[in-house]
């Protein structure tokens, strides 16, 4: 059982890190968040519900770790635009260039949304959590996830010209 938990934990590191970057937008801080989340997850592993997926549980732990630091960051932190980081450089070639333009448009539009809408969109549409899983991560009712997600996507559609 420990082996399963550890294997899944290590396997989840890339998405966990991506989620951390979406929260704090700083790769260095994201790595620390992931490490903190791993430590807390290991400490609380006995509370893992074997019938649920591990990732949403890890997301929740990571987000709680971020709230501690992020409550401050959200208002006056020194965020670095992800586009400026080396990791944001995408592959090469024309297709990648097109993808990058689209990516930038979508991410730019996403960045203009209120944080509460942005975070449900990240969880459901980027990380592909179910509404119920996203509600668990955020500690809010599923109905709230749905209303924020719907409002956010309607706003996003307007910004991106999706009809």
């Amino acid at each position: 059982m420990r082996d399963d938990f550890e294997t899944e934990l290590v396997a989840a590191l890339p998405v966990l890190r991506r989620y951390a970057i979406s929260l704090c937008r700083r790769p260095d801080m994201a790595d620390d968040l992931v490490q903190i989340a791993v430590e807390r997850a290991v400490a609380a592993r006995d509370r893992v519900d074997p019938d649920t997926r591990l990732e949403p549980w890890l997301f929740r732990i990571l987000r709680n770790a971020w709230i501690d630091a992020g409550r401050r960051q959200a208002t006056r932190g020194t965020e670095i635009d992800v586009h400026d980081t080396p990791e944001a450089a995408v592959h090469d070639g024309v297709r990648a260039a097109e993808a990058t333009v689209m990516l930038r448009q979508t991410e730019a539009a996403l960045a203009t949304l209120p944080e509460e809408q942005r975070e449900v969109i990240v969880l459901v549409c980027f990380e592909e959590l179910s509404y119920a899983e996203a509600a668990g991560v955020l500690g809010i009712p599923k109905g709230t996830v749905m209303s924020r997600l719907a409002r956010g996507r309607v706003a996003l559609a307007a910004k991106l010209g999706i009809e």
């Binding site: 934990l9 290590v10 590191l13 890339p14 998405v15 890190r17 991506r18 970057i21 790769p27 790595d31 992931v34 490490q35 791993v38 990791e87 944001a88 995408v90 990648a96 993808a99 990058t100 689209m102 990516l103 979508t106 991410e107 996403l110 969109i121 549409c125 980027f126 996507r153 996003l156 559609a157 991106l160 999706i162 009809e163």
Partner: peptide, 26 residues
Amino acid sequence: GTRAALSEARDARPAPEVPDALVARV
């Protein structure tokens, strides 16, 4: 449409490789 656009955006930026230092710490 919004779901598709967001999926594409995500796929255009795959989860970056986890730095070795982080894996070592974990």
